[in-house]
Design a protein around this nucleic acid. Sequence first.
RNA 1: GGUCCUUUGGCCGAGUGGCUAGGCAAAGCUCUGCAAAAGCUUGUACAGCGGUUCGAAUCCGCUAGGGACCUCCA
Length: 497
Amino acid sequence: MSLKVYNSYSRQKEEFVPITPGHVGMYVCGPTVSGESHLGHARPYITFDVLFRYLTYKGYKVRYVRNITDAGHFEEEGREAEDKVGKKALLEKLEPMELVQKYTNLFHWAFKQFNCLEPSIEPTATGHIVEQINMIKKIIEEGYAYEVNGSVYFDVKKYAAGHDYGKLSGRIIDDLLSTTRELDGQEEKRDTADFALWKSAAPEHIMRWSSPWGEGFPGWHIECSAMATKYLGAEFDIHGGGMDLQFPHHESEIAQSTICNHTSPVKYWMHNNMITINGKKMGKSYNNVIKLTELFSGDHPLLTQAFSPMTVRFFILQSHYRHPLDFSSEALVASEKAFKRLWEAYEVLQKLRLPETGEGQIDEALESRVLNWLSEFEEFMDDDLSSPKVIANMFELAPVINSLKDGLIPTGALAASTIRLMQEKFHTFLEDIFGLHSENSANNNMLKGVMQLLIDIRKEAKNKKDFATSDKIRNQLTEIGILLKDEKDGGMSWNVN
RNA sequence: GGUCCUUUGGCCGAGUGGCUAGGCAAAGCUCUGCAAAAGCUUGUACAGCGGUUCGAAUCCGCUAGGGACCUCCA
């Protein structure tokens, strides 16, 4: 079966065929480490983490490059040539690189909580100034950039004459060129649609590098072009990022790389949609940001409780990555419960007793439904990563699993091979591909031993119909957050809430 | 203003022409010493109006609401 992905560039689903058979080059726009990551950032990195995992599952050798933007861009291009990172550093009285390090560490910490795999290469913008300068030089040589007062701009009009600037983001070039917006500093540009490749640094500017055009710093878009070219080549398979980066960032990236490398850089452009809050995009300018640390601690006016990383990951996977996802505490609570129920069914499944040969009669109808649900896992993922549908099927299977365990469905109703397949598929999709894991923090042997002791005492009490003792044990455990459940067969299980 | 997207049951959220998505919540039942968990059953939703069609949540048009991008943004 073959994977189909939605290509933003062609605006349709296309069969995924890598440029080099067996290998995939994937670039994802990483974070700007001038501040703390928020819930909105979780979506692209989890989405593309799943894609990375899925491609790997499909047997591809994937080189996953995700940059760290630590050089900072303009707060408002053309208006105040302010380096975002530099400015905040002054306020916090930190060295710029100290600030960058702090937020990079925090970013890494948060996404480790989310169980995101580390990219193959995580290049930084500041570490690739030379590559960026070389690329700009090349673009000037090609005649598509010009220097003014120590800054270098990309000539969009000239580019658009021979290329389809605006195709990715659905812009009409004439509209872009005729924009009448008045911005200070625009007079340097030949055209308002032009964008900076290199900016001359004002004296107070902290982050600065020498270049053939004087002291300055790179434009925002050039870093991705330079680093993607360096590590993935002039032409690579997948470029991912948030929808809000389509224009101008990715559009400009295409233009720069195309001129520099004489080929269109990316085969498949993939964009995730936004996380909204009350219908509005989560973003600094809207003042509706929930930082990841706040999410994990529950310390935010919009949160009724803390939410674990796995709950958030599951929440994100329950919707399709190209659709907007509206956040609310209620929605997260629902996902938390759903995830818990699914995970418990998964754990039950892994411990399910396999039927002996000839034990009971196979329920053909059930068997074929189960096999169908299982085979759809991959089918759905192949269809542009339809994780919500896979999860829906898992929930169809959960009652089957629980009923097998409780004896409501006889053990022999499903063939041993079917149950084994179910175990395998759940493991593969839930853990390897979706990247989910147990949140049961009680995985230490000492607690297990203590719990076994309590369970034994409670069983004895129950056998003696000493319900006062048995209830005391259960109730007090409940109070400290351990849930004890009586099983149908007289056994007991427990989990930490 | 320009370009594009979207509007599904109490809530979240799949779904692009005909077949029950799913989750959470709610109600009833079964199991249980009681409870929890689990299982079973129940909802007949697709913004409004009109059109195409044998048939539309799904295609087209209009109206209304929401949103994204056009500026740093995941």
